[in-house]
Computed example of a mutant assay.
Amino acid sequence: MSIPLIDLAKLTSASDAVRQQEIQSLDTACREIGFFYLVNTGLPNSLMQALMREAKRFFNQPQQVKNAIDIKNSANHRGYGNIGEEQLDEVTHADWKETFDMALDYPADHPLVAKYPTMYGPNQNPRDPQTLEVLQDYYVAAFEVAQKLLTAMAQALSLEDDFFTRCFTDHVTVLRMIHYPPRPEAGHDNGAGAHTDYGCVTLLLQDQTGGLQVKNRQGEWVDATPIENALVVNIGDLMQHWTNDEYVSTAHRVRASLPDVHRYSFPFFVEPDYETQVTCVPSCQSADKPAKYQPVLAGDWIQSRFDATYAYREEKH
C-alpha cells in the first residue's frame, strides 16, 4: 500500500473535468485506505514554520510554567498534557509525548458551556502572546482547508455540497501541538499507541523526523513518510459511522523518537457541532446494505471516546 496524494487545488478547480477526476481519486482513497497526503493546501509555508517554532518554544519552557495550564484543571479538555497523560492503545505503555490542546474559546457563561461543559468552554492559553497568535492563525487557516475538503467529500458521496460543512457552526474542532521527546529506554517504543481518530477527518502537519505509521488491509504497518508542506489526512470514526463503513477509519501509531531526537506534529481534529445528528448518509445505504449504526449525536460519540482514553476524565464521571 502506498498512501496516495490528493491535490486540494484540483479538488476546488474551476475546470469541471479536473475537479471530478480528483474527487474520484479522493473517494477511492477514503474507501480503500482512509489515509492520504493533501498537497497544494494553500497554507502559507511561513505559517507552518512559525507553528513549528512556537511549539519548540512552548514545550521548552520550565515544567512549572506548562503545568500552570494543566489539562486536568480544564473541564473541557484544553491546555497542557504531560508525558504519560494519554494512553491511546489500552494494551501497551502510556504514550511518550506531551501535548497542548485548543479549540474555539467559549466564555464560561455561554449557553453551550452550561449544556455541555465537558466539550465547550474557555481555552487555557499559553502565556506568550506570540505563541497564542500563531496558534490562532493556524487554527483559522487549517479550518478553511478542512471545509474545502469536506465539501469535496460531500460531492464524492453525491450529497449536497454543504452536507458536512453546515454542521460546523459551534464545532468542537481541536488543534493539538505534540512533542515526542527522545524515548527513555529501548523497551519503550510507544510514542502514540495504535488507535483510530474519533471525529470526521484529521489534518496532520508533521515535521521531517518521521515515525507515523498506518496499518494497511493486510495488517502491516506502513510508514507515512513526511512530505514537505503536505498534510497527512485520515478519516475518523464519526465519518466511518456517517458513511456506513464506506469511508474507513484506519488504525495508526507513532513510534517513539530515537535517543536525542525530538519530533513535533500538529493534528487538527475536525469535529462538528455537538448536536450534529450523525445518521447514515443516503448514498451509503441500500436494501442490500442497511445502516449499521444507530443515529448518534456527534458530541456524545466523541465524549465517550475521550472518557476511554484519559484516566483523569474517567475519574470525573
Rank of each mutant, 00 (worst) to 15 (best):
M1V: 06
M1F: 10
M1Q: 12
P4A: 11
L5M: 14
A9W: 14
K10C: 01
S13R: 10
A14Q: 14
A17Y: 09
R19A: 00
Q24I: 03
T28N: 04
E32S: 06
E32Q: 13
G34Y: 14
T41M: 06
R53Y: 06
N60M: 02
P62L: 10
Q63H: 10
K66F: 09
N67E: 15
I71W: 14
N73Q: 13
N73L: 09
H77K: 11
R78C: 03
G79P: 00
G81F: 08
N82T: 06
I83D: 07
G84M: 10
D89E: 01
E90P: 00
V91N: 13
T92H: 08
H93K: 14
H93T: 07
H93C: 04
E98R: 04
T99E: 12
H110L: 04
H110D: 09
P111A: 13
T118N: 10
Y120E: 08
Y120R: 10
N123A: 02
Q124W: 13
N125L: 07
N125I: 09
P126L: 07
P126H: 11
P126D: 01
D128E: 13
P129V: 14
L132K: 15
D137F: 08
Y139F: 10
A141G: 05
E144M: 07
E144S: 09
K148M: 09
K148S: 08
L149W: 14
L150S: 04
A154Y: 12
Q155D: 07
A156S: 10
D162S: 10
F163R: 11
T165A: 08
T165E: 07
R166M: 01
R166S: 07
C167N: 09
F168E: 04
V172P: 00
L175H: 12
I178L: 12
P181T: 08
R183I: 05
A186S: 11
G191I: 02
G193F: 13
H195D: 01
T196E: 05
L203T: 11
L205K: 15
L205F: 05
G211S: 10
L212N: 07
K215N: 06
K215D: 06
Q218R: 15
V222W: 08
V222M: 09
D223Y: 02
D223S: 04
D223H: 01
A224F: 15
P226K: 04
I227Y: 08
N229S: 12
A230P: 05
D237C: 00
M239Q: 11
V248W: 01
V248I: 11
A251M: 13
R255Y: 08
A256M: 12
S257L: 02
S257T: 12
P259D: 05
Y264M: 05
P267D: 04
V270F: 12
P272L: 09
Q277E: 06
T279Y: 01
C284L: 11
Q285F: 03
S286Y: 12
S286I: 07
A291M: 09
Y293V: 08
Y293E: 03
P295R: 12
A298G: 08
D300G: 00
D300N: 11
I302D: 03
I302R: 05
I302A: 02
Q303Y: 03
Q303A: 03
S304V: 00
Y310G: 01
Y312E: 04
Y312W: 13
E314T: 08
